[in-house]
Write a protein that binds this DNA or RNA. Structure first.
Lengths: 139, 139
DNA sequence: TCTTGAACCTCTAGTCACTAGAGGGATTAG
DNA sequence: CTAATCCCTCTAGTGACTAGAGGTTCAAGA
């Protein structure tokens, strides 16, 4: 039971050109071809692509995903590395959240400083965007 | 009182090639030149570049910044647009925070599921990365 | 005034993770 | 058999820069 690239695309939720791109980049294996040179995929190809997709959705960078794929092809290795990658990613996500929260605070302050019914010339929004010194903290 | 691109770079905290890039893109004005074709900047150039930089630091996308710069060059216009841009950006930041929080939850779960001292073959980290159905929510 | 070395100039190409389009061939349903 | 839909490769474009080559100008010290 095999399926075309369009089928795979639908099932995995990854666009067709993106699948071909992943193949060029060596992130998925080259599939078998029909006599007419079209790609035909199996269930295991679908699983691998879904893995890739899910990692991307979780925000993992491509090189982390490469490591994980590499790892999954050596099932006898200890899994400490997989855990390390996940842990690193967790810290990265937390750092990004912290940063965005600071931005949120600044933007709230900027929005509140402006009633919206006066001229640009003395608009606090523009002033705030111009001058970091008006901010309460770093960002 | 004018200064070179290197001076401007230091004062605004924007790298030299980036300044030239902004000029090409029309985000800052073309400065005057010396007889030997080198750029010379004024204080108002510095202000504009600092504005740009601060907006980028706050995470505004380039086209929003373009709008704001456009706006600041027409000081007689009402400032509702500036306020709208800031408000939109605030919602965007909040949406990103919400998304990242979901990722944080998933990654926490994934990390906790793994002791790190067994083989990859039955590693919960890899299983979790492979299968979205194991997730508690959307992301 | 001359020299030296840092800073400057333009131009092209590379980055990442795709996406879009051209121009043409394969497959499949009716 | 035909028409519609899918598929193929290849090139180039995206955003927001960054890196490098190869050459010129500037400012400070001797």
């Amino acid at each position: 039971m095999t399926f075309s690239i369009g089928e795979l695309s639908k099932r995995a939720g990854v666009k067709v050109p993106t699948i071909r791109y992943y193949e060029r980049e060596g992130l998925i294996e080259e599939p078998v071809r029909t006599g007419g040179n079209q790609r035909r995929y199996s269930i295991s190809d679908l699983e691998r692509l879904s893995f890739l997709r899910h990692c991307r959705d979780l925000g993992l960078p491509m090189n982390a995903i490469r490591e994980l794929i590499d790892l999954s092809q050596h099932p006898d290795r200890p899994c400490g590395d997989a855990n390390r990658i996940a842990t690193e990613q967790l810290s990265a996500v937390r750092a990004r959240i912290a940063h965005l929260r600071q931005l949120e605070t600044e933007l709230e302050r900027i929005v509140l400083s402006c009633s919206g019914d006066h001229a640009v010339a003395d608009c606090n929004v523009l002033k705030a965007f111009a001058d970091h010194a008006m901010c309460q903290g770093e960002h």
